[in-house]
Design a protein around this nucleic acid. Structure first.
Ligand code: FES
Ligand code: FES
Lengths: 141, 141
DNA sequence: TATTGACATGATTTTGAAAACATAAGTAGT
DNA sequence: ACTACTTATGTTTTCAAAATCATGTCAATA
């Protein structure tokens, strides 16, 4: 459903939201180790998010990544589309060039409704949702 | 969501269901041309389906692929799982090793319900559904 | 039974995502 | 200024899916 890059992006962002403390930045090393993903690869992904202002970063000693208040207002969908592109959850499940209710493929109406709801949920879920304490302990997070 | 192999498999099977006439077999060449997919690649996929008795085939002149009455009772989900494996629509969207409501990832409950419904729909849709005449004219089919 | 037309199977090549490598650039402390 | 630390950027390598190539097997027909 999502590329590995995208999965890493989501997990890293949520990790940032869950583990961020006031004024403390998290390094790629720590995040990559905690999530058990390739460090250099994750670095690229975080930089891609950073370029689009979805996460914030500071270089140098004590540097690292963090979420600004503004960053936390972004939705999961923005993270996803930043990495996998705007066609994610919008293109034909059978790979046909266009997907719409006007020229539907045989499976279009089997998926459209649920896919839309997924998109809607993801768009309505802001990163700040994951920074609340008292959330259940997620595995590998 | 599905691999290209799987998309081709679904499209080819539906094509068979829609274009099959009594006692007439459809060759890989015709199917591949109609669907605009690589012929040799599609051949492999159809053979994979054939080995699991999801489609039927006959060699030699006038040979080709067709759907036996038994074949038509299979569900789309069987086609999908034959190609992409049983974990399709069952594994964690974030790529975590196991997906269950007992050890859910942060996105589990955002997807679980809709994913289940997709599976359910696919499992309940038999191939014979596509052989009824009077269906809308699908693009590239 | 020879030929032809189709599926079947194995090996190989291509392609792009995933991962690793190398180096630059910026920041904090000494 | 110098060093150490961390993000940023560009290049290269790895790997599996996708696609192709080459050859084998089977059935209809003349
Ligand atoms: S056209 Fe295929 S899913 Fe919409
Ligand atoms: S655990 Fe991630 S989707 Fe179920």
């Amino acid at each position: 459903m999502f590329s590995k890059s995208c999965q890493y992006a989501i997990r890293a962002t949520i990790y940032l939201a869950m583990h961020q403390e006031e004024g403390k930045n998290l390094g790629v090393k720590e995040i990559a180790t905690s999530l058990d993903v390739p460090q250099q690869f994750l670095a690229k992904i975080l930089q891609q998010l950073s370029r689009q202002n979805l996460v914030s970063s500071i270089k140098g000693p004590n540097g690292g990544f963090y979420l600004s208040p503004e960053n936390k207002l972004n939705s999961l969908l923005q993270i996803i589309e930043c990495i996998d592109g705007p066609l994610t959850l919008n293109s034909c499940v059978l790979g046909l060039p266009q997907c719409s209710s006007v020229t539907p493929c045989p499976l279009h109406f089997n998926f459209f409704e649920y896919r839309e709801k997924m998109r809607q949920t993801l768009g309505a879920t802001s990163i700040s949702n994951f920074s609340n304490p008292g959330l259940p302990p997620y595995p590998t997070y």
